[in-house]
């Protein structure tokens, strides 16, 4: 449908006002909200992701597109009152205990929301207990942990140990990221994935969900 294509295009250009206006128009034309979401907003963000990977778009343009997507989502949310807006899954995000560096984690959260995930961002200095309790309570499928310091990256293992102790390892997947960590470290501590940048983290989380 033409209007869904238009929503995708204005979203790619980062124009939130137009995305909101076109989303309203689409609903008025009685297009199913799920189609507006999947074939307009999410489709646009997927193209943005591809263009970012191929260097045709830069990070600020991706963030603006994500912001434009939220503008469209705000229109759609009330229409999904019963079951809530469909998402790709719920992810709990946080910078680990003792660490207040949250720039990378924030970027990943923005990218995840842009890709259609439901993100609960616990912020920084998050304890293992808080990660695990929130994930269980909110039925999250993935915990994303970030650290900038070699002294705090060890906390990531404590989160995974706690998940294991609670019998949740495997049911709730884990992904880690941040300057001092690596794929080798992820394997060493038993994390399910390692994301080397925000877009890669989104891709990894999608793959983790597919494996279930």
């Amino acid at each position: 449908m033409q209007i869904l294509q238009e929503i995708s295009e204005v979203l790619q250009s980062g124009n939130g006002e137009k995305v909101a206006a076109l989303t309203k128009q689409a609903i008025e034309k009685e297009i199913l909200p799920k189609d507006v979401l999947d074939k307009g907003l999410i489709a646009g963000m997927n193209i943005v992701g591809e263009k970012y990977r191929s260097h045709d778009l830069f990070l600020p343009e991706v963030l603006l597109a994500a912001k434009a997507m939220y503008a469209g989502m705000d229109i759609l949310k009330p229409l999904f009152l019963k079951d809530g807006i469909p998402t790709l899954g719920r992810v709990v995000m946080g910078t680990v205990q003792g660490d207040i560096h949250d720039i990378g984690k924030n970027l990943v959260s923005i990218m995840l929301r842009g890709a259609g995930f439901d993100v609960i961002d616990l912020g920084k200095d998050v304890s293992p207990k808080k990660f695990v309790e929130t994930a269980r309570k909110e039925k999250a499928r993935v915990i994303g942990m970030s650290a900038l310091l070699t002294t705090t990256m060890v906390v990531m293992k404590r989160v995974i140990d706690l998940l294991r102790k609670e019998g949740l390892q495997g049911k709730i997947k884990t992904i880690i990221g941040g300057a001092p960590v690596s794929a080798e470290f992820a394997e060493q501590i038993g994390a399910d994935a390692y994301g080397y940048d925000s877009m890669n983290s989104v891709d990894c989380i999608k793959r983790l969900m597919e494996k279930e």
């Binding site: 990070l59 600020p60 963030l63 603006l64 912001k67 949250d102 720039i103 924030n106």
Partner: peptide, 8 residues
């Protein structure tokens, strides 16, 4: 300080 970044 308000937005926490200046990317956009």
């Amino acid at each position: 300080l308000k937005e926490q970044h200046l990317l956009i």
